[in-house]
Design a protein around this nucleic acid. Structure first.
Lengths: 150, 150
DNA sequence: TGATCAAATGCAACAGAATTGCATAAGCAA
DNA sequence: TTGCTTATGCAATTCTGTTGCATTTGATCA
């Protein structure tokens, strides 16, 4: 397992400093976690995954807020009205054409990378700047299983 | 303003009784309100709109739960992780192909009646049963105004 | 009408997610 | 290493929604 010292000079740390922010352990850990996750994580997921490091709950909230503000991550409210976070694709011009899949059984949220979302025609006077698109159903692990995955 | 007596035998009341439920003042009031609203209302919106009647907070929550259960209304979690409710179109087979517009300025949610949403292709093993589609931006009243509409 | 009874309500307490204030700790530039 | 600004940790609070339970009431039937 990497210590803070070891990853302090990593590309991730440089990316954080390039934004004018400090490369702190909490930011490095959360960013690494989100980058390695294939799905959108809740604050609770992140807290459990980084339990060893012992970050304060509020610190994680603030790191996530900062990531969303600086464009490193997306934030969506899931059906249980809990925020979920996923890394923003660096190439994506706006984090607006993002699609998700939420499993009704295990409540996990997956990013649908290759789904193209187009904005529909809107009523007169309305101007759209972003689109949220979420499909619900059963994920590959839960489909056909009585017991939800993990 | 209509008294409870006056609207007790209305078509709305009959619709409620047809579902095997009692036509109570709270249900009539909420149903009337949602039917006359052009947008999805939060519990807070509803509480304020029906302030005169003095319904308890919990009663409104339970009426809304009942409406969703019996198919009279849709419920979605908005970007601020607040539930919003809108009447279900009686003809609509499933409340899955529903599209919304959320104003970034005033946070109100509008129903986009005529937008057709189709489910995208999903990864192997995934099975979708519903779709949520929400466009964000500025509504007709807030567009170009510095101060958000009410 | 009036009695009856399950369904609905009101009140209080609770629960979970997220935010705010403030004193302390720590990253990083000089 | 020093100093300053940013980030963190802790406690308390807000906001949204839920649960338990005693009381009231809508609708049925005599």
């Amino acid at each position: 397992m990497n210590t803070f010292k070891q990853i302090k000079s990593s590309a991730t740390a440089a990316r954080i400093r390039a934004l004018g922010a400090r490369a702190t352990p909490a930011r490095l850990a959360v960013l690494h976690l989100l980058e390695s996750a294939k799905r959108a994580l809740s604050h609770h997921d992140i807290e459990q995954a980084l339990d060893d490091a012992g970050f304060d709950r509020v610190t994680l909230y603030r790191v996530l807020d900062w990531m969303v503000e600086s464009g490193l991550a997306h934030r969506v409210a899931d059906a249980q009205r809990v925020f979920r976070f996923s890394v923003a694709a660096p190439s994506s011009p706006m984090h607006t054409l993002h699609a998700h899949f939420r499993c009704d059984a295990c409540s996990r949220v997956f990013c649908l990378e290759d789904v193209v979302v187009q904005s529909p025609r809107l009523p007169a006077g309305f101007h759209g700047s972003g689109v949220e698109f979420c499909v619900t159903g059963h994920c590959a692990q839960c489909d056909g299983n009585a017991v939800p995955a993990k």
